[in-house]
């Protein structure tokens, strides 16, 4: 509840510039995909988004450091971040939902099982299986082989889980005021995150060049890249955020009690970690 010091910022140019930057990026990507030109617009859009965000957050940091924010403001940020993560949960839920639907309903139906089994009339040679190696239409080439979950994906699981632990250690240290430990654990977290992305990059390379898992390889390839791809993008973004946090720690921005930026980054990172566990189980293992 309001305590009388709630900070309402003055007019700011960042919101509208952020809107324009997002628009530029999306329109640029659209032009690239549809008309096959205008490649430059995409990087310009990305740079614009990053720049505006940086400037916007700079203002926020300045305000925070000059003590304009009170506890109530802190709660607003917390609610904001929490609900944002909830929206991300729903975003991934849609993708997991698609995966389950295909595996539990669509493929068995195409193979003649279940309530809509008559559909098999159209695909007499099709046999449902998961991972789906031969899609219903023989013109669609399925994957040749799938990723073995107990090799690189397991390593990646260990990376991410460990990184969540190191991040928690870092946070604890921050709360205790141990600056070196905070920084070191955070660096470790970041390194693990970057390793994860590298391993995933290597896995993608393998998938495309040796295993025949591509976006075009039927529904297996589609769901595989959809889920792992968006997850990977989130790890990357999370790592960038953690990088910023590292920088802020170096600059001495956080105090024992006032470090919501760091906590928000940590929430995000843990969320990304949890999504990975889901992925590991349902995309790789089962």
């Amino acid at each position: 509840m309001s305590g009388g010091s709630y900070y309402v910022p003055a007019s700011s140019k960042w919101p509208i510039l952020a809107g324009l930057a997002v628009g530029l990026f999306m329109i640029g990507t659209g032009i690239l995909l549809v008309f096959d030109t205008g490649l430059v617009l995409v990087p310009i859009g990305v740079v614009a988004i990053v720049a505006v965000m940086a400037l916007w957050f700079r203002d926020v940091i300045k305000e925070s450091r000059s003590g304009l924010y009170d506890d109530q403001m802190d709660r607003s940020f917390r609610w904001g971040m929490a609900w944002f993560i909830f929206s991300e949960v729903m975003f991934f839920l849609a993708f997991f939902g698609a995966l389950f639907y295909v595996r539990v309903f669509a493929l068995p139906w195409l193979d003649g099982e279940g309530a809509k089994g008559v559909s098999a009339l159209l695909w007499p040679d099709f046999a449902a299986s998961w991972p789906l190696m031969s899609p219903p239409d023989s013109n669609v080439a399925g994957p040749k082989e799938v990723v073995n979950p107990w090799q690189l994906p397991l390593v990646n699981t260990l990376f991410l889980v460990t990184s969540s632990i190191t991040l928690t250690l870092s946070h604890e240290a921050l709360k205790e005021g141990h600056r070196d430990t905070t920084r070191n654990c955070l660096i470790l977290t970041l390194v693990l995150g970057v390793l994860f992305v590298c391993v995933q990059g290597f896995e993608y390379y393998e998938a495309y060049h040796h295993l025949g898992i591509t976006l075009q390889a039927g529904i297996y390839g589609s769901t595989f890249f959809l889920l792992t791809g968006f997850h990977g993008a989130h790890v990357t973004i999370g790592a960038i955020i953690l990088g910023v946090m590292l920088w802020r720690i170096q600059k001495g921005h956080f105090s024992e009690h006032n470090h919501f930026g760091f906590e928000a980054a940590a929430w995000y990172w843990h969320f990304v970690d949890v999504v990975w566990i889901g992925l590991f189980i349902f995309v790789y293992v089962f």
Partner: peptide, 11 residues
């Protein structure tokens, strides 16, 4: 991709 295309196993 084949999310909404039965030829690739989607629906």
């Amino acid at each position: 991709t084949s999310f909404f295309n039965a030829a690739g196993g989607g629906d």
